[in-house]
Design a protein around this nucleic acid. Structure first.
Length: 255
DNA sequence: ATGGTCGGGAACCGA
């Protein structure tokens, strides 16, 4: 059972790359972020055998879950703020798993209202994550977290020190969630290696390997017990018309 | 220190 997360940075521009990747890697569940549309082509994926959940908005944000197995919607928004209309959260049950697909706010510039929104969103996420750990099902929190957990996850930490992805408050909020009992799948699989999931379009970041690790899969204890492998589909970044993110994934043993 | 590049959608905002 493979569960993957991929910030595609626009379904319209990324359709060819996304479809190639789905065909080549055949994930059981694919969590997508930044679909950037209020018109996701769900019917086309359904015609191709996928079950689809999505929540979108025009131009920005937006998340989707594609699944080869029956997919039951649990939530279309992160609890805790009825006034938050940004499309950043989907939660579903699939194949005995509980899966959340998340697009955590970027938060730049910091300080400022966008950073305040990020920290507030992370506080709501921490509350939801704690509730999910109390549930029965093995659970995954997969998505673009817009958090570099440590300087080992940043190619140029000095250049990123004041960035909302790296600030101490951001890292502390992430650590607090991990400390509830979640496993950072990629870091568990690669304890000492450099692993990036994002390279900026600017300044030749890909060619210089100026990357960040900001796409994460957090596993509940029951899910972590079933982890057989984890990885990053790094070659995605080298393609023409690539997203600035690549896909990350975990392989879980059968229940 | 600055500006560098994309996507969405039609002038800039977001990243």
């Amino acid at each position: 059972m493979r569960v993957a997360t991929f910030n595609i940075n626009g379904i319209k521009a990324r359709r060819p790359r996304l479809d190639e990747w789905l065909a080549a890697t055949r994930p059981d569940v694919a969590c997508l972020q930044e679909i950037k549309t209020d018109r996701f082509p769900a019917e086309e994926y359904e015609a191709d055998g996928w079950q689809v959940l999505w929540v979108g908005q025009k131009g920005f944000n937006g998340v989707a879950i594609l699944s080869r197995h029956p997919l039951e919607e649990v939530a279309r928004a992160l609890p805790g703020d009825a006034d938050d209309t940004q499309a950043r959260w989907l939660e579903a049950r699939v194949a005995g798993l509980h899966v959340a697909c998340l697009y955590l706010p970027n938060g730049n510039p910091a300080p400022g209202p966008k950073f305040d929104y990020k920290l507030g969103w992370m506080a709501r996420l921490a509350a939801r994550a704690r509730d999910l750990l109390a549930g029965e099902a093995p659970t995954l929190l997969a998505g673009d977290w817009n958090v570099c957990p440590t300087d080992a996850d940043v190619a140029r930490p000095e250049a990123m020190a004041d960035d909302a992805l790296c600030l101490p408050q951001t890292r502390e909020a992430f650590r607090a969630i991990l400390a509830q009992g979640w496993t950072d799948a990629l870091r568990a699989r690669f304890p000492h290696e450099t692993v990036y999931t994002y390279w900026d379009y600017q300044a030749g970041a890909w060619a210089r390997n100026w990357g960040l690790r900001i796409d994460h899969l957090l596993l509940s204890p029951a899910a972590a017990d079933r982890m057989q492998d984890a990885g990053v589909d790094r070659d995605l970044r080298a393609a023409d018309k690539a997203s600035d993110h690549v896909a990350a994934w975990v392989e879980l043993s059968p229940a």
